[in-house]
Nucleic acid binder design. Structure first.
Ligand SMILES: [Mn+2]
Ligand SMILES: [Mn+2]
Ligand SMILES: [Zn+2]
Ligand SMILES: [Zn+2]
Lengths: 146, 146
DNA sequence: GAGCCCGGCGCAACCGGATTGCATCTGCGC
DNA sequence: GCGCAGATGCAATCCGGTTGCGCCGGGCTC
């Protein structure tokens, strides 16, 4: 999987700006984790985030978990359940990051957001069921794995 | 969650018939696990299956895992990834059990197959990506939990 | 700039679903 | 019935994620 950073310095600054704008306490681990998500070309597992940070700014794995939870609660990131019983995290770029589909490669596990795929807003449910959220995931092979 | 059996004896016979028809070795744990799935009104976790069997025909939990894998590989059951990092299993009733959506209650965890909800057959993917399977999951509250 | 304090951090222990290794048992073809 | 490939049971292990707790430091107050 390709997760080369896109303009690391700019993303680090953007991360700090986003945290400040949210009125939250700015700490080095928070900025570092969010910067990694902003730089990434795909949604990352906890392990991938930790590994990316290891070379530049090691952060305790529990802290990474807690920062990710916090980012999700804040709406700055979203959590994507995976086939492999681990979660992947992606930055929520737009302020009101709407529902969107995801693609997961069955071979390498890479997961990307499909921002422009419309998720069916409503499906027919059994009587009395109330929908809250719709999740649409496409599985297949990514361009690199074909 | 309601998982009262639907005609247990008939389902047990159906389970044995399905395994025989598949040309596979018929063992007591296999028949018992498949019967539980056929009787269930919703998709069950490994734990729920084990608990259901405990009263009538206790099966080692590792065996349950292995039987479930085997049923999925055989196409007699399908595996639904859940929000809670556990899997749920449902019998695949039709021989060519097509793609269908699922509903998961965010309160009690009950997961049911929505056999009649059309899953979008094709979504626009990035260049070079090849789709294999589409998964559509609706989260919300079930009738009992509202 | 120094001090305070609450919330964030690191560390170690823990949890639970799932997997693996291996010896024993058994369904079923002969 | 026999034999054996393959299924089962048991114990140990793995691994993603969580919890408890003492220390630390970001940011407000003056
Ligand atoms: Mn996404
Ligand atoms: Mn189903
Ligand atoms: Zn791939
Ligand atoms: Zn419910």
């Amino acid at each position: 999987m390709d997760r080369r950073p896109l303009r690391p310095a700019a993303k680090a600054a953007a991360a700090r700006r986003l945290i400040r704008a949210a009125g939250e306490r700015l700490t080095a681990p928070r900025a570092a984790v969010l910067a990694v998500l902003l730089e990434a070309r795909s949604a990352l597992t906890h392990h991938e985030i930790e590994a990316t940070l290891a070379t530049t700014f090691p952060v305790d794995r529990v802290t990474v978990y807690r920062v990710l939870d916090w980012l999700v609660a804040l709406g700055l990131a979203h959590r994507i359940p995976g086939e492999d019983r681990s979660w992947r995290f992606g930055a929520s770029r737009a302020p009101a990051h709407g529902p969107h589909a995801h693609f997961t490669c069955t071979r390498c596990g890479t997961t990307v957001c499909l921002e422009d795929v419309a998720v069916p807003p409503a499906v027919k449910l059994p009587r009395g069921f109330r929908p809250q959220k719709v999740e649409l995931t496409v599985q297949g092979l990514c361009a690199a794995c074909r």
